[in-house]
């Protein structure tokens, strides 16, 4: 089955201030959907709300994963469904090694942890420490394979999560995590920002490989640049907390020519057109 993530007339606020003002958007597995919009328009907020950040309050509308609302799910439960958010600003967690963290995450998402818990409940026996984790050998093998495949230095494994990472290293780290967690739908929040051309290639290449393997991606970006490397199937324009235009790759080209100023000037017209499309 092809997984879909549908966002329906989503309104969300932070500290009483409405940021998302009726977002409509559908992301399908195997598809790249670019979301372009000016700074401050609420793109990251959308990513956070999809991932379940507790700081944001959904006031109306819905988010459906394969037709079912995920609004009541905790962030980890959403991750287990196969939703992944690559952060615009990944946080550094001192003292937590990349490998240990990722092994715990993979074990949880792939059900090792739940199976260990069920087993314990069934047999009434306490399991050994580590039994809720993916076996170390298997994990390391897969991690190193993917590090090689996605051009991430093996030394990452022992480093602390994002601690002292350069901007580029953080973004590569996000791609590696994504490769290990194998989500069905990934939201990539400005995975291209602050990257030099080599890093941009590595990151884009990673996204392309995962999409080819069947992942769906919402590619949030401020610039056209990454779209030279990752070809979108659909492009949506985001403005002031909502999607104002959706189309094919030509929308990105048009946007680059005309700029966000054009969007602002033609807002009323776009709204009208959308109503026609939706109606």
């Amino acid at each position: 089955m092809t997984a879909t993530l549908e966002i329906k007339d989503l309104h969300a606020s932070v500290e009483e201030k409405e940021i998302l003002k009726g977002v409509n958007l559908t992301i399908r597995q195997g598809e790249v959907h670019a979301l372009m919009g000016p700074n401050g328009s609420g793109k990251s907020t959308l990513g956070y709300v999809i991932a379940g950040h507790p700081h944001y309050e959904v006031t109306s509308g819905d988010i459906l994963f394969n037709g079912e609302s995920i609004l009541d799910l905790e962030p980890d439960e959403r991750a287990k469904l196969g939703i992944f958010l690559a952060f615009q600003y990944p946080v550094a967690v001192p003292g937590v090694s990349f490998a240990n963290f990722l092994r715990a995450a993979v074990s949880s998402v792939r059900g090792y942890k739940d199976r260990a818990r069920e087993e314990m409940e069934r047999t009434g026996q306490l399991k050994e420490v580590g039994s809720e984790l993916m076996p170390m050998r298997e994990f390391r093998k897969e991690l190193f394979e993917k590090m090689d495949r996605f051009n991430v230095d093996r030394a990452f494994a022992r480093r602390y999560l994002n601690d002292g990472f350069s901007g580029g290293e953080k973004k590569r780290g996000e791609v590696l995590q994504m490769a290990m967690l194998q989500p069905k739908i990934a939201i990539l929040d400005e995975s291209d920002s602050g990257l030099d051309i080599d890093a941009l290639r590595v990151v884009s290449d990673g996204i392309n490989k995962l999409v080819a393997d069947g992942m769906g991606a919402l590619l949030i970006t401020h610039y056209q640049r990454i779209l030279d490397y990752v070809k979108p199937d659909k492009v949506s324009v985001f403005y002031d907390g909502r999607v104002v235009l959706t189309g094919g790759p030509e929308v990105a080209t048009m946007l680059e020519e005309k700029g966000y100023g054009w969007v602002e000037d033609h807002l009323a017209e776009l709204e009208e057109k959308k109503k026609l499309v939706n109606g």
């Binding site: 991932a51 003292g95 937590v96 949880s108």
Partner: peptide
């Protein structure tokens, strides 16, 4: 939130952060 978004439940995430703090 970052760790939870990767699939760790809240308790595990907190434990990991505390363990990391002492590292």
């Amino acid at each position: 939130f970052y760790l939870m978004a990767r699939g760790l439940d809240r308790k595990t995430a907190q434990r990991m952060i505390v363990q990391g703090f002492f590292e």
